[in-house]
Amino acid sequence: MGTLWNNYRYLILRRVTQISLLVLYFGANAWGWKILMGNLSSSRFLNFVPMSDPYAALQMLAAGAVLGADLLIGVGVITLFYLLIGGRAFCSWVCPVNIITDTANFLRRKLEINRIQGKQPATRDMRYWILALSLIISAIMGVAAFEFISPISMVHRGIVFGLGFGWAAMLIIFLFDLFVLKDGWCGHICPLGGFYSLLGKFSFLRVHHNEANCTLCMKCKNVCPEHQVLHMVGKESLPVLSGECTNCARCIEVCDDDALEFSIRKLAQNKKTGE
């Protein structure tokens, strides 16, 4: 039991966080709870603190919308929060699509689909191109372009306000990640993930690698949904500084040798490594 907790503690905490947030949002619509009202695009915490998706606001700005004060405060709150704890913490601790893509990735490993499809036919930089494209289309079409196709909002809004055909969006992402591209949606395409990668470049909460303890088992790289961020494993003792790290902490819990641990980013060290 102790090892189970040790090997899955962050995964369990993440699922608990993701599902509790969903339940709180759902309760606001179903039973009139006032803890978290709205959805991931924009919401109110305790019917007071506004929170808004900064990427959605950016698209609205590109589309030429006049942004209200509540929205700007909400954007400020969320931006500040993820600036501190790591932008893509949203992806692994809040986003409901993460549950779908993690399941696909898990099945991929168990069914050994990775062994018949070793080479990834797409670049992970695609998300930044899609991010840029979304802003261009927003400007040309005069609407927040990604918000009209975003499976994240579709799934989350669906769970809170009624799903409709939203289950199809879930299934498409699941099948895509399982059969077409490993970490396809979250690791390659999602421009919201790309946006939070850029935002999270400067955050304080980091995974730190201690090379002295590493036995080169590579379990961490195997389980990591953004394995390129672990380039230092077995080579150098360094913090994971890439904004693409989702702070999901799977690497920490699969490591049997205490070679990976959360730490607060040391500013002095950053100067030394030039980051």
Binding site: A28, N29, M37, G38, N39, S41, S42, S43, R44, S52, D53, A56, A57, M60, A63, G64, A65, V66, L71, G142, V143, A144, E147, S153, R157, V160, F161
Partner: peptide, 16 residues
């Protein structure tokens, strides 16, 4: 309507 489509963030607070 044109401005509404630009400006609505689809949060559902009006629905609640």
């Amino acid at each position: 309507e044109d401005d509404f489509l630009k400006t609505c963030i689809k949060c559902g607070l009006c629905v609640l």
